[in-house]
Amino acid sequence: MGDFRGQGVLFDPDGADWRGVSPKLITVRLIVIGVWFGLPVIGGLVALVIFRHWWIALPTAAWAAPGAWAAWLNARLVRAIGYLEREDDLLIRKGILFRQLTVVPYGRLQYIDINAGPLDRAFGLAKLSLNTAAGSLNASLPGLAPDEAARLRDRLSALGQARMAGL
């Protein structure tokens, strides 16, 4: 995937063929950012215009800054999400500034969830969550096409069952 260039060898084992998630996730996340940051900021601006108190600008700006930051990074962050199915484990990669690579061994999978909220469904997306016995492991793949999510779920649970039996 294009945007993985420059992430360094550390997060790109053997130049393998990583798969990205759907670009529609960019839109979905933008909408979410808009709701969380855009609406309050608009409200703040309206209040500023109506009441003309300069200090209203302060919380508005304080709220707008992270929103703008999130919106600016959004597309790159989504493009940075990738996964790689290997023989024995699934690798999930996330983040640009703070990078994270998670190795989930198939034989350790306990259950796999597919979640799709209303916004996700409207855009035809689903989120796959992988759960092992470690509560601390946060391995999820947002922005998958439902078909791909179902395929991954079936494949991973089959592989998991085959490998888990022994241990």
């Binding site: 994270q100 690579l101 989930v104 061994p105």
Partner: peptide, 11 residues
Amino acid sequence: RIQGIELSQGP
């Protein structure tokens, strides 16, 4: 016994 492995790196 390991359930998962995580590699992380900040800027």
